[in-house]
Write a protein that binds this DNA or RNA. Structure first.
Lengths: 167, 167
DNA sequence: TCCGTATAGTCAAGATACTTGACGATATTC
DNA sequence: GAATATCGTCAAGTATCTTGACTATACGGA
């Protein structure tokens, strides 16, 4: 139980990226645990990442592909899983024979509702921990950061190599 | 190119967790791209997550396992990869015949140095985007959040189910 | 109207990053 | 010394992503 070397003092990271990563992981772990405790056993981080891009009113699968920062095949596989779990369903798009509409099932909407509640609970916990002022500053800074950036999509699209140079 | 439905207006997420996640992903994507551009082709997010827990002076593999929020087998596999890449090396622990010491090779230390530089560049970019004041508030809030929490490890350890109830 | 091309989605195969389970070797404790 | 715990490894399986190849539908002219 005795720490023989005080490695804590030896340059473990403390920069924005690391902090953001830790904070993000902590939030996700807390949220996912609460969701599963609420009976949504199908909930995973990867699925959450995708669901975040599906508005309550539904969307086209192709729109989803544009927004999320992964390949269309990845989106498809995640949707396959969510569909199998009964969280979302896919319908043919009446306006485009090629397209599919993705929308929530009752089960999915229930999960969203629970998610909203949990989200607020976590926020309350954060405010308790760091104070309302700091919390507001945090959100403000994150929003500014997001707005100031061409956002993740461009970056990843660029990295991935412009599927179609629609110049 | 015409947006037929204005889905933007339909409840896409805007809460701390989502913002943190997006910000974290953006940071990592930027960092990883810069690292690879600098010749560290072996660099991946998962490896970065582990390296962040290895102090420059090295550490015991078991200490690494305690700190990182994944299973010991995952840590091992990541170390296997890093060792194969020549980034770290493992030596027997002279003080405990069971243990192994993990430390950086020259190549690893070079990568850390480059990483530090890139990290500062990214920070500079952030400050340009949102201003020094907001940036300071961001870091301050993240630090407070981290300090206020029993941190990620307890949570994940609890979730995973207490390998050994060392009561 | 028909043809070329772009777009939406699917199928298949493989890589990476994890997981749990089982195990051998060394320490520790009594 | 013997029971027990810890450290690391080996093996096998799962989730999440990737690239490549393909089908079906839509669209924009000649």
């Amino acid at each position: 139980m005795v720490k023989e070397l005080d490695e804590k003092s030896d340059s473990l990271p403390d920069h924005v990226g690391w902090r953001l990563w830790q904070a993000s992981r902590a939030w996700q772990a807390e949220f996912a645990a609460a969701m599963r405790a609420d009976g949504h056993a199908w909930f995973t981080d990867a699925r959450a990442g995708l669901l975040g891009h599906i508005p309550r009113g539904g969307t086209r699968q192709s729109a989803l592909i544009e927004r999320s920062a992964v390949s269309k095949q990845a989106v498809q596989q995640l949707l396959d899983g969510l569909e199998a779990e009964g969280v979302i369903e896919r319908l043919p798009d009446p306006r485009d024979g090629r397209g599919k509409l993705v929308r929530y099932t009752r089960k999915g909407l229930d999960a969203l509702r629970d998610g909203d509640r949990i989200k607020l609970q976590i926020e309350r916990g954060y405010i308790d921990r760091i104070g309302e002022r700091r919390f507001a500053a945090l959100v403000d800074a994150l929003r500014a950061l997001d707005a100031g950036q061409g956002d993740l999509l461009e970056t990843t699209a660029r990295i991935r190599g412009e599927t179609s140079e629609s110049k």
